[in-house]
Amino acid sequence: MSGYELVEPSMEYRDEYLDMIREWMETGENMVPFVLKFDCADFDAFLRELHRLKTGSDLGSGKVNSSTYWLVNADRRVLGAVNIRHTLNEQLLTIGGHIGYGIRPSERRKGHATRLLALALRKARGLGISKALVTCDKENVGSAKTILNNGGVLDSEDTVKGTVIQRYWIETGEAEADADDR
Rank of each mutant, 00 (worst) to 15 (best):
M20W: 05
I21E: 03
W24K: 01
E26T: 03
E26C: 05
T27I: 02
G28R: 08
M31P: 10
P33D: 00
P33G: 00
P33V: 00
P33R: 00
V35R: 01
V35P: 05
K37C: 09
K37F: 07
F38G: 00
F38D: 00
A45G: 12
A45C: 15
F46C: 07
R48K: 12
R48M: 08
R52V: 10
R52L: 12
L53K: 09
K54D: 08
K54Q: 11
G56V: 10
D58H: 14
D58Y: 11
L59M: 06
S61R: 15
S61Y: 14
K63N: 14
K63C: 11
V64C: 12
S66M: 15
S66T: 15
S66N: 13
S66F: 14
S67D: 07
S67M: 15
S67Y: 08
Y69P: 10
V72H: 01
N73E: 09
A74G: 13
R77D: 11
V78H: 05
G80R: 02
V82P: 09
N83G: 01
I84K: 05
R85F: 04
H86P: 12
T87K: 14
N89W: 04
N89C: 09
E90Q: 08
L92K: 08
L92I: 11
T94V: 14
T94F: 02
I95Y: 06
I95E: 11
G96Q: 05
G97N: 03
G97H: 01
H98F: 10
G100I: 07
G100A: 02
G100W: 01
G102M: 03
S106G: 11
E107H: 12
R108V: 06
R109P: 02
G111K: 07
H112R: 08
A113S: 09
A113Q: 02
A113N: 05
T114S: 12
T114K: 06
R115N: 11
A118P: 06
A120H: 02
A120I: 11
